[in-house]
Design a protein around this nucleic acid. Sequence first.
DNA 1: CTAGGATCCTGTCAGC
DNA 2: TGCTGACAGGATCCTA
Length: 280
Amino acid sequence: MPELPEVETIRRGLDKYIVKKKLMRATVLCEKSFVGEVSDARGSVAGLRRYGKALIIDLDNGKSLMVHLRMTGQLIYDGAERYAAGHPSENFVAELPNKQTRVVMEFDDGTLYFNDQRKFGFIKVLGTAEVEEDAFIKKLAPEPWAMEADEFYAKLQRHKNALIKAVILDQTIICGLGNIYADEALFAAEIHPERKAGMVSRAEAEELLKDARMVMERSIESGGSTMATYVKADGTKGDYLEKFAQVFRREGQPCVRCGNEIKKIRVAGRGTHICTRCQK
DNA sequence: CTAGGATCCTGTCAGC
DNA sequence: TGCTGACAGGATCCTA
């Protein structure tokens, strides 16, 4: 679930809890969820970086932890207070570790839990100098802010027979969008998700690129679609979906632009939300 | 090379 | 209540 805005929110939110803190030891509860030598996951945290939907935790021992939450990953820091982010679930306020806990990272003043219901996500330890050479990182396309309309349009032309929604979900074409923001950006740009990429005009491509930036910026500003939860209080979940989503999970409700009923269909194997009147 | 579908895994929910 | 299939905020692998 976590798309670029959620991971960026985690990067910013986790900073004050673990940067300059000492990671004493990591314990792997699910082998599939951890790649590399676990004893390398030790040392002080030098900083946090992000590449698309991947979070990088740089350590001062020459190693880095690459965290990819995929569909259901969560990072929950439990110390004097709790900071939880990622896939929203009861785990945010549950006793930890629990049966969805895959990796436990013990710091000098708290514990960082990597939880992941479906086990699609992972933590990978690798040399800090090798992060940018990692196969996944290396093939990521630029984020929308770093891409010119001409480049984006050229990529749509290259994949002219693929559905536009599938194209913008491809991280090697444009980086950061997931199922929510793909639907939101296509709605904002008034483009039907089943249109072939080659049938998107240069002007529409420019608008779509602009809207992709816009929907993700708005989400980051509000703390991600599922706002990181500070569980000192009551687990207030902030909510891009409620505050800003125009179509995602709004099937059956009226379109904010024209009042027509929002429909849910399947495109490229993903649940897809559209206004059939606005999006052509 | 591109495009589309199956697959990884666990949990929940709708519909018998 | 119990079963079954569909589905889920991602990405890869396999096939044509």
